[in-house]
């Protein structure tokens, strides 16, 4: 028992929690921006995956990890641009399009992995993705980890205290009212969605850098988990980040239990955060209050007699 306790309070374990949490936190904070503006963040999974792949290719080609991270953010934003075009310009159904973007990212990364690297499972190891030291200090002072912490703080402040944050919240609660005050709902929503894409793409880049390569389907549901985290965080960036950390903690415990052979079922621990989200969503713990206009398209054009699919 004490051996187990020692495992879970060690610096190495805490470092692992941070490393695992970075993609969750970045995607969840990005997703908060998108959802608070009224656009469902179901495409986070695809943005993470595209970010991971683009980061790998860019770092492989340029030999620079920084360029890799930038490319990751760019690819995430590109996914967000396609998603934004569909759901904002064409007012297409957000859930269908979100799933479609995830399928697209999964298919496209596998396709280009095959054509570019000649493998259907993974890219070669990328030398530029030097992990360096996996200790707690080195992890916490990694530029991207620092950037993540800054992003969380800035997002929390910006959403509640800046004019842009106010506009995002306004178009997410009542776009028609916001429009009558001169705010352009579609423009604000597009910015929020692009921001979510860049942040999620950056999270994906970290994922690839942490494993030193791209592995097909490596996002493995993390985007959906980030979506759960932001709901658990009641659509507030700071709390969403904490929830992301909680999911990271559960995963780290599961991995450690598996390696320790202590006989505690890791799958039960892994299941816990999902059950917790389900319970929170049902209003048994606190109360989930989504933005009022979440998922509802804003139609600037009064021609709305055209039947939409589905």
């Amino acid at each position: 028992m004490s051996a187990m306790l020692a495992t879970f309070v060690s610096f190495a374990f805490l470092a692992a929690v941070v490393r695992i949490s970075v993609p969750y936190v970045l995607a969840a904070v990005g997703g908060s921006w998108s959802e608070r503006s009224g656009v469902i963040a179901l495409a986070l999974e695809g943005m993470l995956l595209a970010g991971a792949f683009a980061a790998t290719v860019a770092a492989y080609a340029s030999g620079s990890q920084t360029i890799g991270f930038l490319a990751g953010a760019g690819a995430g934003a590109l996914c967000a641009a396609i998603y934004g075009l569909l759901v904002l310009r064409f007012s297409a159904d957000q859930i269908v399009c979100g799933v479609a973007i995830n399928l697209l990212a999964d298919g496209a990364t596998r396709f280009f992995l095959k054509t570019g690297f000649g493998s259907s499972s993974n890219s070669p190891r990328v030398a530029a993705f030097h992990s360096g030291d996996a200790g707690l200090y080195a992890t916490l002072t990694h530029p991207l980890v620092l950037a993540t912490i800054v992003t969380v703080v800035l997002s929390e402040l910006a959403l509640s205290r800046t004019p842009f944050g106010l506009r995002v919240r306004a178009v997410g609660e009542h776009p028609e009212a916001a429009a009558s005050l001169g705010v352009r709902p579609l423009g604000v929503r597009l910015k929020a969605v692009l921001l979510s894409g860049a942040l999620a793409g950056l999270g994906g880049a970290w994922l690839a850098a942490d494993q030193h390569q791209f592995v097909a389907g490596m996002s493995n549901g993390r985007g959906y988990i980030a979506l759960a985290a932001l709901i658990l965080g009641n659509w507030r960036p700071g709390r969403a980040a904490l929830a992301g950390l909680l999911f990271g903690l559960a995963e780290a415990i599961e991995i450690t239990l598996q390696a320790s052979g202590l006989g505690v079922p890791g799958w039960a621990v892994q299941m816990l955060p999902y059950v917790l989200t389900l319970v929170t969503l049902a209003g048994f713990i606190g109360r989930a209050r989504p933005p009022q206009a979440l998922g509802r398209p804003f139609l600037p054009d009064p021609i709305s007699d055209i039947q939409k699919t589905p």
């Binding site: 569909l86 269908v96 596998r110 992995l113």
Partner: peptide, 22 residues
């Protein structure tokens, strides 16, 4: 690469829900 079909599936969905109503 057979993964081309996964891309096509996504493109078909986007085209049906996005472009077709347009």
């Amino acid at each position: 690469p057979k993964e081309i079909v996964d891309v096509l599936e996504a493109v078909i969905i986007c085209a049906v829900v996005g472009a077709a109503p347009e």
